[in-house]
Simulated assay, not measured.
Amino acid sequence: MPTTTTLVVGATGATGKHVVLQLLQQSQNVHAIVRSKQRLHDLLGEIDPESSVKFEKQLEVSEASILDLSDEELKKATKDVDAVVSCLGHNMSFKGLWGKPRKLVTDATRRLVEAIEANQAESNDHDKKTKFILMGTEGVTNPAGGDDPRTRSERSVIFTLRYLIPPHSDNESAAQYIHTKRDNPRLEWTVIRPTDLIDGAVSKYALFPKPQGSLFGGEDKATRANVAKSMVDMILSETLWEEWKYKMPYIQDAN
């Protein structure tokens, strides 16, 4: 297996921590941008108590708020990486839902992509490609279409979320932005859309071109560890990547 380097943002999130640890467990290099290096190590230690020792040489951590980094700092962070994974999201608190930055995911996605493209413009390696994996939600609509049929009530709820709940609007805007990036053959992307997220161990998962079942109260679940595994698999498996690049797969646990 070739050794890759992946930049992970949102690495202290409930899914992002699994992405980091699973990449490290696969002997891959990870650069994480987080507000607190200690918090990341604590979260990884809760899953694997020996992680800080075992993976010290593979893990690089930068303490920063992603939107506070300058363009040059983002260029440095994305230089020579094979993949960028964004698990950014809004905290489910009043401040997280309604406070600033309201376009955290969109602005971070845009700035990271611009940094990748700036590095590519200066590079002599015209064959090197960069993968961009964005974590969305089940309710994020695929700009390319194909998600219907949705029921009238589901479409009404999505419309309401889009215009009244800033985090949902942010996630959709980020997906719409990355969807426009089809003209650069060296930048490839996918948007992972999980069903209802739960904690749990890694198991088998299933990917679909569009959401399955009802948006409301369905029995389908996806463990955060499995969502992370799908991202890691796409980084390491070219066959899987070729199947899902430029698409917005829906993920749920296979059982």
Rank of each mutant, 00 (worst) to 15 (best):
M1A: 05
T3E: 07
T4G: 03
T6D: 00
T6N: 01
T6I: 02
T12D: 06
G13K: 00
G13M: 01
G13W: 02
T15L: 02
K17A: 03
V19W: 06
L23F: 07
L24N: 03
Q25P: 05
S27W: 03
H31K: 10
I33R: 02
K37I: 13
Q38S: 08
Q38E: 10
R39H: 05
H41Y: 10
L44N: 01
E46K: 08
P49S: 15
P49F: 13
E50N: 13
E50Q: 09
S51M: 03
S51A: 04
S52W: 05
S52P: 10
F55W: 10
L59N: 12
V61N: 14
V61C: 08
E63K: 04
A64V: 11
L69A: 09
D71M: 09
D71N: 03
L74A: 02
K76D: 12
A77L: 06
A77P: 00
A77I: 06
V85E: 06
S86D: 09
C87Y: 14
L88F: 03
G89C: 15
H90P: 11
F94A: 04
K95H: 12
L97K: 15
W98G: 14
P101R: 15
R102V: 15
R102M: 13
V105T: 15
V105R: 07
D107W: 12
A108R: 09
T109D: 03
R111M: 02
V113A: 00
E114N: 00
A115M: 02
A115E: 10
I116Q: 01
E117Q: 07
N119C: 14
S123T: 07
S123K: 01
S123F: 08
H126T: 03
D127P: 04
K129Q: 02
T130M: 00
K131W: 06
I133H: 08
L134C: 06
T137K: 03
T137A: 09
A144M: 13
G146Q: 02
D147L: 00
D147F: 00
R152K: 14
R155C: 05
V157L: 02
V157R: 00
F159R: 04
I165T: 11
P166F: 10
P166H: 11
S169V: 08
S173I: 12
S173F: 05
S173Y: 09
S173H: 05
I178Y: 03
D183E: 08
N184Y: 01
N184C: 08
P185R: 02
P185I: 03
V191R: 04
P194N: 06
D196I: 09
L197Y: 04
D199H: 07
D199Y: 08
D199E: 10
G200F: 04
A201H: 10
K204P: 06
Y205G: 11
A206V: 07
L207H: 13
P209N: 02
K210G: 01
P211A: 03
P211S: 09
G213C: 01
S214C: 10
S214P: 04
S214W: 06
F216I: 05
G218H: 04
E219P: 10
A222P: 13
A225R: 03
A225G: 06
A228R: 05
K229E: 14
K229N: 13
M231H: 14
V232E: 07
V232M: 08
D233V: 05
I235R: 07
I235L: 09
L236G: 01
E238T: 12
E238K: 13
W241N: 11
W241L: 10
E242W: 15
K245Q: 15
K245G: 09
Y246H: 15
Y246E: 14
M248C: 12
I251H: 12
Q252V: 15
A254P: 11
A254C: 12
